[in-house]
Amino acid sequence: MNIFRLTGDLSHLAAIIILLLKIWKTRSCAGISGKSQILFALVFTTRYLDLLTSFISLYNTTMKVIYIGCAYATVYLIYMKFKATYDGNHDSFRMEFLVVPVGGLACLVNHDFSFLEILWTFSIYLESVAILPQLFMISKTGEAETITTHYLFFLGLYRALYLFNWIWRFYFEGFFDMIAIVAGMVQTILYCDFFYLYVTKGQGISL
């Protein structure tokens, strides 16, 4: 554990909580891509199946459970509780365009050709592109609410902080995980355009 890893995790947690609270408090999921949220729920589910097979630390287990719980709570709010406010017409990105190629890649490029490891690899690849339906939705409607941009900022910041974590771990522990590093770079790059808008325009974005 180092400072980049910890702040990365907290940034990730902040993003998840911000989105959940925003939907809950406003009783609306307008402007939020339900498809991105389904993909994130799928990411956490496939990555954290190791909860059943290996124990890393109390911190690790607690965070995993919170991430999974929040992901499903968010999907529930969007598709069940506040379904009437869900903007399905603008959430038109096709999930299979991400899930199918990513599944194929996970089978081809992985650390170990085993069931759990392929699911872990799938989750890493899928996470790197899971935000695309949300970004697509914003580009389609041409705007994003302030709180939505805070959500995206913390979600993007988290993986960027992990990149520093991996540099740290490479120098001080000799540790590196090429699959996570490359996917993490792709993921961070996807947010660059958004970061630029967030910093220059600040808060609410209208294209």
């Binding site: 890893r5 995790d9 990730h12 190791d50 097979t53 290996s54 890393i56 690790n60 965070m63 995993k64 991430y67 650390h111 170990d112 490891e117 872990w120 992990y162 974590n165 522990e173 000799g174 540790f175 590196f176 995980d177 090429m178 996570a180």
Partner: peptide
């Protein structure tokens, strides 16, 4: 060492 399974990150 490089990567060792299981994965210890989130």
């Amino acid at each position: 060492h490089a990567l060792q399974l299981p994965h210890d990150e989130l």
